[in-house]
Design a protein around this nucleic acid. Structure first.
Lengths: 362, 362
DNA sequence: CTGAAAGCGCTTACAG
DNA sequence: CTGAAAGCGCTTACAG
C-alpha cells in the first residue's frame, strides 16, 4: 500500500493514513484548505467561513475519522477538559462511591473526564497528588471528604476548587454538603408524627459536623412537637462504624427508668447494632420500639429484619452539584462568589417505625 | 517588579517568575546550560553529564520549584502517564468501589493517574468514552465488569488493555477474576467440616459466570466429603439484588421433606433474605440452621444478627493486579502473552455457621 | 561532555 | 473569506 495518494483526489485520500493517527494537517490537505481553516471550522469559531468550505471540511474530517488531539490542543490553550476529584479516601471506602459516581456522570455530560486521587489523609500524599494533577494541567479540582466536615485546603491560586461533603471554615470556597440539620429533624419528626413522646438519639461521639447538625435537627423536631428535650435520651458512641457501638449505646437507653419507645440512630450501622441488642432483650421492632437510621446504606437497611426506615444521603446529587459548579466556574458562567449548597436528605420509609406500644390497637 | 533580572546571577533569578509557570527554559537560563542538558539531567538519561552540571541543574530546578509539564512532554513522547478504567457501571454502584480503589492505589504507586468512565452498558456511550480517552492519549485501558463475566471489547490495536472482573472469551487479553470455583468449594467445605450432610445452595438464576463456578465448587466440596449431590437442594433465584429473592428461595428449601441443615447463598443479599424467612419460621441461626454467604458485603454481613459468615471478594487485589499488569505491559517488562489471573476469595468467619442440630451438645 | 534545532499537533493573532 | 507563521514546553536525533 502506498502511503501517499494523488493529492486533490478526496476519494483516494479519504482512507485513513496507514499507521499514523489522522492529523489536522491531513484533513487540511485532503480538503484543500489550510490548517487554520480546519481548526476554525471544527471549533465552530464565529469567523464567517464560506458555508461550502465548512461542509467540505466537516465531511473530510468525518471520512478520515479525524479527532482533534486534546493533548496538542491543551498545549496551546492550557485547557485539558479534565478535572480531578481529590479526597482523603473517598474512592477508597464504600461510603464514597455515589459521590464519585455523581461527579463522574456530570463531568461526562459536559464533555469532561474525571481523574481520581486519594491521599489517605497523608499531607505528603496530598502534596504529591496536587503536583501530579498540576503536571497534567487539570482545569479544576474537587476536594472531597468522606463525611460532612470542615476542610482546609492548601492555597490554590491557579486552579478553581469546589468542596464536596465539606466546607471551607473561612467560606472562601463553594461547597456542597448534605442538609443534616433538616435530615435530623425529618427523621425525628417521623417518630413524633407516629405519636412517640420519648425518643432516644444515639449520636456519633466523634466531633463531626454531621453529628452536631443531626442533634440540632432532633432537638428542633422535639420542640416542634411540644416535647421537652431530656438529656438522658441522648447517648453517644465512639464507634459509628461497626454494630458494636449501637449495641452498647442502645442498652443505656433501654436501661433508663423511663425508656424511649423509639430510637433515632446517627447512622444505619449504629441502627444495626441497636437491632441486635433490642432483639436480645426480647423486644420487637417496631411493635415494642421503633428504630430510624441515617445514610440509607441500602444493602444493610434492606437486609435488616425488619427493613430499616432511614434518611438517604444525597451523595450522587452532591457529586453532580460539585462538578457542575466547578464547570460553571471554569466557563465563567457563574460568578465566583462562593456558595454553600445544602442538598436535602430524604426519608426512605421501610418497616422499622410505627406507633408507640400505647397507641397500638389491641 | 521587573520581569527579568540580571542574567547569570542565580541568586537573583532563583525566585519564581511572577505569574507564569516555571519552564525548562527558565531552569536552563538560571543554571547557565541548555534546555537539552536540563532535560537530560532531569530525566536521568544515561548520557554522561558532568557531575557538577547535574548537581547545579537539579539544585536550580528545586529552587525554582520547577515541575516538568506533562502535557508538553506527552506531546513529544506520546506518553501521558495516565490510564483509564472503563466499565459499564463499576463506579456507579456500591459493588465496584473496591476495584476502583485498588486500581487507583496501584496506579498512584507507579506514578500514574487514573481516569474513570462509565458506559452504563450503552454501546454508544462506550464509543464516546473510548473517543474521549483516545483524545487524551491515555497509555492504557482497563475494561471492568460489575461481576465476573465474559466481556467482548472493541478492537483496540493502539492501546494495551487488561480486563477486570471479566475475561475475553477468545483469551486474547490478560484478565483478572475472582476464583469463584474455589470460593464456592471453600464456603461449602466450611459446612461439611462442621458436620452438615444436607447442604442447600441458593444460586443466582441469571446465567452468570460466577453462578456456574460457585455451583461447581459446591459440588466438588460435596464430593470431597463423600456426599451425593441432591438436585432438590439447589434452588435458584432471579433476584440476587434484594432480600426478596433469598426469602422465597429458602422457603423452597425449608419445605423439603428432608430439609437442609445448612444453606450456602450465592451472595450476602440473598443470605439476608434467607435470614428473614428462617426467622419467620421460628428457626434459629446457627442453632437450627447454618447460613453462609458470599461477597463479604461488610456493612450487611456485620449488621445481620447473627453476623454472617461469608467469602470475601478480592476486589481491591483484583483492581491492583489489573493496573500492575497493564503497566508492566506498557513498560514492556512483561511479555504480552495474555494471562488470566484468578484471585482467591477468602472465608470471613462470623457467627452464622456451626454444627448441625444433631451434633450439638445437649 | 554539551548545545542548536527540529518537531509533536494544535490555536491564534496578524496580514491580505 | 482564508492562509502563513509563530509558539505552547517539552524530547531527541545530530553535530561538534
Amino acid at each position: 500500500m502506498p502511503t501517499s495518494t494523488a493529492a486533490g483526489d478526496p476519494s483516494r485520500d479519504a482512507s485513513a493514513p496507514s499507521g499514523r493517527r489522522v492529523t489536522m494537517a491531513d484533513v487540511a490537505r485532503v480538503a484543500g484548505v489550510s490548517k487554520t481553516t480546519v481548526s476554525l471550522v471544527l471549533s465552530n469559531a464565529e469567523t464567517r467561513l464560506a458555508e461550502d468550505t465548512r461542509r467540505r471540511v466537516r465531511s473530510v474530517a468525518r471520512q478520515l475519522g479525524y479527532r482533534r488531539d486534546l493533548v496538542a490542543s491543551s498545549m496551546r490553550t492550557s485547557q485539558t477538559r479534565t478535572i480531578a476529584l481529590l479526597s482523603d479516601r473517598l474512592a477508597t471506602t464504600s461510603v464514597g462511591w455515589a459521590m464519585v459516581a455523581g461527579a463522574q456522570a456530570a463531568a461526562r455530560e459536559r464533555g469532561y473526564m474525571l481523574l481520581i486521587a486519594n491521599t489517605e489523609g497523608d499531607p505528603e500524599r496530598e502534596v504529591d497528588a496536587l503536583d501530579a494533577l498540576r503536571d497534567r494541567r487539570v482545569d479544576g479540582l474537587i476536594f472531597g471528604a468522606l463525611f460532612h466536615r470542615a476542610l482546609t485546603i492548601p492555597d490554590m491560586t491557579d486552579t478553581p476548587v469546589v468542596l464536596l461533603d465539606a466546607y471551607d471554615p473561612e467560606r472562601r470556597l463553594s461547597a456542597v454538603v448534605p442538609d443534616d440539620e433538616v435530615g435530623g429533624h425529618d427523621a425525628t419528626a417521623l417518630l413524633t408524627a407516629a405519636g412517640h413522646r420519648r425518643i432516644g438519639f444515639i449520636d456519633d461521639a466523634n466531633d463531626v459536623t454531621a453529628a452536631t447538625l443531626r442533634l440540632d435537627g432532633y432537638h428542633r423536631a422535639l420542640a416542634d412537637a411540644g416535647l421537652a428535650a431530656d438529656p438522658d435520651l441522648v447517648v453517644r458512641t465512639n464507634d459509628p462504624i461497626t454494630p458494636v457501638g449501637g449495641r452498647t449505646a442502645v442498652v443505656e437507653l433501654l436501661d433508663l427508668p423511663d425508656p424511649p419507645t423509639a430510637v433515632f440512630c446517627f447512622n444505619d450501622r449504629i441502627a444495626s447494632g441497636a437491632y441486635q441488642a433490642i432483639r436480645a432483650r426480647g423486644l420487637r421492632i417496631p411493635e415494642d420500639i421503633s428504630v430510624v437510621g441515617f445514610d440509607d446504606h441500602e444493602a444493610l437497611a434492606e437486609g435488616l429484619d425488619p427493613p430499616l426506615t432511614t434518611m438517604s444521603l444525597p451523595h450522587e446529587a452532591m457529586g453532580r452539584w460539585a462538578v457542575l459548579r466547578l464547570l460553571d466556574l471554569l466557563d465563567g458562567t457563574d460568578d465566583a462568589a462562593p456558595v454553600v449548597h445544602r442538598e436535602a436528605c430524604r426519608p426512605v420509609l421501610r418497616a422499622s417505625h410505627g406507633p408507640p406500644p400505647s397507641r397500638r390497637p389491641g
